[in-house]
Amino acid sequence: MTVLACVIERAERVRVVEYPTPEPGKGQVAVDVAYGGICGSDLHYFHDGAAGEFVIREPLIPGHEIVGTVAAFGAGVVGLEPGSPVAVHPAQVCGSCVDCLGGNPQLCSSSRYLGSAAHFPHVQGGFTERLVVTANRIFPLPDGMSLRRAALAEPFSVAFHAVRRAGDVVGRTVLVTGAGPIGCLTVAALRQADAGTILVSDLTDAALQNAKLMGADVLLRADQADTQWPEQVDLAIEASGTGPGLNTCIRTVRRAGRIVQVGILPPGTTEVIGNAIVNKEIELLGSWRFHLEFSAAIDLLATEINAEPLISHEFRLQEAERAFRSAADRLSCKVLLNIGASAN
């Protein structure tokens, strides 16, 4: 028996190939994958053969935004039934390092993340018809939650973690630079957390309209000279992953304000207006993935936040190359691979 999987072999080279069907061992769960969302890191692997410093050195199955149904499980797994809808946590952490024990497992240096070339051999990802992971990474979906909506759980967790890094946002004026999927989901998380005025900047009207759907109050075109930027904001969350976006945050945030960098910047050195960080006493915080927020993020998507309008395109697994090229189009937002949803 075999399953199909999407494999990136090098830059601009993706194929759908057959693999032996994986079987769960002790403490493991096999998931029939329904949907996989294409992330910015997946796009970097496809277009560049690398995501930041992580270079593809062997064929890589990408994908870490994974939902599906329980297919089978090994000895020692309890509380799951075949056919149950679930989301898959993409990270396997060690649980014993200083970061894991200190409550920051997202910083675990031994973490193995689905679809990542950070280690060799690479950690194969979820763009496959069947995925096997340890049972502790399986999160049953709330009753009535669709697999399609649940496919946003991983990127929303990234945004949710960034907003938590920002601290108390109640009533605050917040600028979000970048209205891609993470930026838009950051807006949704800010709105749910009772932020005050939310301003969003981007280069395209289509992206800004997506941010408006999630609750943005003020839309700013970053590429237009006549754009009326605010004099200052209380907080800024940089989600574009660009130097200009970060510098906009530095210029715009008030003295003693805070900036959270959640967008992944290009590899190497990024030029910033560093003296403004000093003379304004700005706090600049990084936000790396997530870990403990996954369950809460799923519940929020199921009950309070309808982020499904951000899903702009859906492609079959066999159309993986079309899906990657569509996801790179600025007119797209969240692009899903429909891997086996028709059977669920």
Rank of each mutant, 00 (worst) to 15 (best):
L141S: 05
A179Q: 06
D226W: 00
T134Q: 13
A150L: 09
A225G: 11
A188H: 12
M214F: 03
L203T: 14
H161I: 08
L175Y: 01
T186V: 10
L190F: 11
D223W: 04
V176L: 03
L175M: 04
A222D: 07
A206L: 15
A207K: 15
D205M: 15
F139V: 14
V200R: 02
I138E: 04
A193M: 08
H161R: 14
A135L: 06
V200L: 04
L141E: 05
R221H: 13
V187L: 03
R221L: 14
D217K: 12
A189K: 10
R164I: 12
T204N: 10
A166M: 12
L190Q: 13
G178F: 00
K212S: 13
P140G: 11
Q228T: 12
T134G: 12
L208F: 04
A211D: 11
V169A: 01
D194G: 12
L152A: 02
A188V: 13
S157T: 04
T177A: 10
I237C: 04
M214I: 07
L219M: 10
N136Y: 06
A206N: 14
L147N: 01
D194C: 14
D234A: 06
V218I: 15
R149N: 08
A166E: 05
G180M: 13
Q228V: 14
T173R: 12
T186G: 02
G171D: 12
F156P: 07
A150W: 03
G144K: 10
R137M: 09
N136M: 06
A206M: 15
T227S: 11
A162S: 15
Q192E: 15
L208V: 05
Q224K: 14
L219T: 01
A151S: 15
T204G: 07
V133C: 06
L175G: 06
E154P: 07
A188P: 08
F156L: 11
I237V: 13
R148V: 10
T197Y: 02
D217H: 06
P142G: 09
T173M: 09
S157Y: 02
P140D: 11
A206V: 15
V169D: 06
E238C: 09
L208Y: 00
I237G: 02
